[in-house]
Amino acid sequence: MALHMRRTLLSLHRTTCSTFKPPEVLDVRSPAPLLLTVRTKKRYFIPPAASLKNKETGNYEAKARAAGVVFRQEYMERPINIACTAGIIDPYVPPEGDSRLSTLSKEGIKQRTEQIRQSAASQLAIRKIKEHDAQFSSKTFAEKAQEIFVEAHNALSNFNKEKLHSLVTERCYPEMTRGNRYKTIRWKFLESLEPPRVVHARCPDMVSKGNLYGQVTVRMHSKQILAIYDRFGRLMLGSEDQPKDVLEYLVIERHLVNPYGCWRLHGKIVPAWAPAKDPIIKTVCIAGPELKPWEEFDSENYQIPKPEAVQWNK
């Protein structure tokens, strides 16, 4: 037993002495990780970079199909808003000068006939509106429309977008806010010169039968103040000291099928005989003299140069 143990220890001593190295020769580096690269089948399509030039361009859709990727078909979709109509259907035609002509004249007879035709269609539309809105009344609705008009313009002058969205339709909102950026609006409703009244009503259906919209035209004659200032604080239009008499025909609309719908301002009808609007005063930059760094500008002795006369030949 002792002999076998001695032989085992001698063999172990020989193996340890043969593999032993001095400290300065020992390799203390960590062993490199064992990585095996495995190439798999590409199951996706990678489009080439847009910056690569002077390379062959092929049919990428065919390559994608070969790789097993199917492109979704593109449709030309347009957003559709069913909360309001896209325009004023059968707009009201105000009589010229907002007065009734004599029935003895040819124009007066034509005007009277047109009024009878429009009033008959308005009565049928009002009946349809009352079927969906039990609180609608042509006598009290005009005052409600005037309140909507005043609140909408107050929200516009105060730049309250959330409140303005609830008072005007999606068609009227861009018309009221277009071009108002960097401008200051001062608007005020003073009084009504005549009580507002309902002059026209229509109840059309859109997209499908039974999808009804109510459009009511209200005549409003009032006194208002309007002043618009540009971004430099200069007056562009109107005046805050001079009120004006304004005659307007407002179109109020509601989606009758929607139980949560409400009456909102949809647009205005501008008759052909209405006077032209006042021109807008624009701020123009006039170039001054070219000064050197050591010179100062003398505003008292400087005269604005006038454009030279140009002779145009036909």
Rank of each mutant, 00 (worst) to 15 (best):
P259D: 10
A227P: 06
G233A: 11
E248V: 09
F141W: 03
L247R: 11
E170G: 12
R264K: 14
S122G: 07
A120Q: 08
N160W: 02
L235W: 05
P195L: 10
H255R: 13
F189I: 09
V199K: 09
M176K: 07
T169C: 05
Y260P: 01
R171Q: 10
P195K: 15
Q118R: 15
N180D: 05
C172H: 11
M236L: 09
G238Y: 05
D133N: 09
V251K: 00
I225R: 09
I252G: 04
Y213W: 07
S192W: 07
A125Y: 07
Y260T: 08
P243L: 06
K161M: 05
F232K: 08
L226E: 08
E191C: 07
N211T: 12
E240Q: 14
R171I: 02
V168R: 00
A152G: 13
V246G: 03
Q135N: 14
L190P: 00
P259C: 05
V198A: 06
L167C: 02
K209R: 14
E143G: 14
E240W: 09
E131S: 15
Q123I: 13
Y249E: 00
R171A: 11
R178M: 10
P195V: 05
E147R: 15
S208I: 13
R231S: 05
L250R: 11
H255T: 06
H165Y: 15
Y249W: 03
H132K: 15
N211L: 12
L247T: 13
Q242T: 13
S208A: 15
D133T: 02
S137T: 04
Y173T: 02
A155I: 03
H132M: 14
Y173V: 04
I185Y: 01
E143A: 15
V218E: 02
Y260G: 08
H132L: 14
Q123D: 15
E170P: 03
S166P: 04
L247G: 05
I126D: 02
F159I: 10
A145L: 01
K188T: 04
I126Q: 07
Q135S: 15
F141T: 00
I148Y: 00
R127A: 14
M220C: 10
I228W: 00
I129R: 01
E240R: 11
P196E: 08
V251R: 01
S239E: 03
